[in-house]
Design a protein around this nucleic acid. Structure first.
Lengths: 134, 134
DNA sequence: GCAAGTATGCACCTTTAGGTAAGTACCAGG
DNA sequence: CCTGGTACTTACCTAAAGGTGCATACTTGC
């Protein structure tokens, strides 16, 4: 590599900004197995923890909480604790989160529109994996 | 809950389709550290392996190839092998892939629009992690 | 009085996604 | 003739993401 020839040339910013486009930034926020689902579901309005848990099927408590905390720290949702005796908490999208969730809609639509092909693809994918594993 | 009252009502399909909406399906396809980036980049037209590798910074050969294979198997892109002596291969989006990549645009836009806030958030996130780890 | 539901916290464990480093077959260029 | 570039492949390893199960503190319903 030609870089190795240079005697450690400049490069004064070790902080790599590294954005192909805004996509990198977005992905950093929504990466997490259930995060897109959570955000998208919250478009329906304030949601209690329990509801969310039931909505986002198969998510474990640990991970759900963890994701919620991260999303809150990232400023896309807000946690509301009503300080009631049987705990009562709900989650809302911030304006930022709302716009993000809306940006997810095309993906949702795409999935819906191509549901049939997806079914086929997943079926093939599964049998393909089975062969490979056996 | 009133559901518990019902004596194990119907539910004749044990094959769980499990789609909150099409989002689940979409996520199954684009989940992979670099997949969204790959798809989005391919919107620019046929791209050789090397170009792609250089475009999607920091991706390793192993993973890039792997992702490309999966995306091909999922029918969103096509691999073109020109069977030439120094290998020459390029990748193109299928119509399906094209529509998918287009559905990613809002995410990209969102990231760009909120770049400033993202910078702040990531900075805070990092120092937050550092505290926690130390 | 005991189970269940509320929203979590924590310790532990497994899985797997991704990275590293090597090798392949072939050719062009210095 | 040896290095570098093409597009991969394979074996191996690690870090991290996610899952499981238990505990909490309080209340209401059976």
């Amino acid at each position: 590599m030609s870089e190795a020839v240079h005697p450690t040339t400049v490069e004064p910013t070790p902080i790599a900004p590294r954005f192909t486009c805004g996509l990198d930034a977005t992905l950093k926020i929504i990466s997490g197995k259930w995060k897109p689902l959570i955000l998208y579901f919250l478009l329906r309005g304030p949601t209690r923890y329990g509801e969310l848990k039931r909505a986002v099927r198969d998510v474990s408590d640990k991970v759900l909480i963890q994701h919620l905390k991260e999303l809150e720290a990232d400023g896309v949702l807000r946690r509301n604790d009503y300080k009631e005796v049987p705990p009562r908490v709900d989650y809302t999208l911030t304006p930022l989160g709302q716009s993000l969730a809306q940006a997810l809609e095309p993906l949702c639509t795409w999935g819906t529109d191509n549901m049939v092909e997806m079914q086929k693809i997943f079926a093939e994918r599964d049998s393909w994996l089975r062969e490979k594993h056996a």
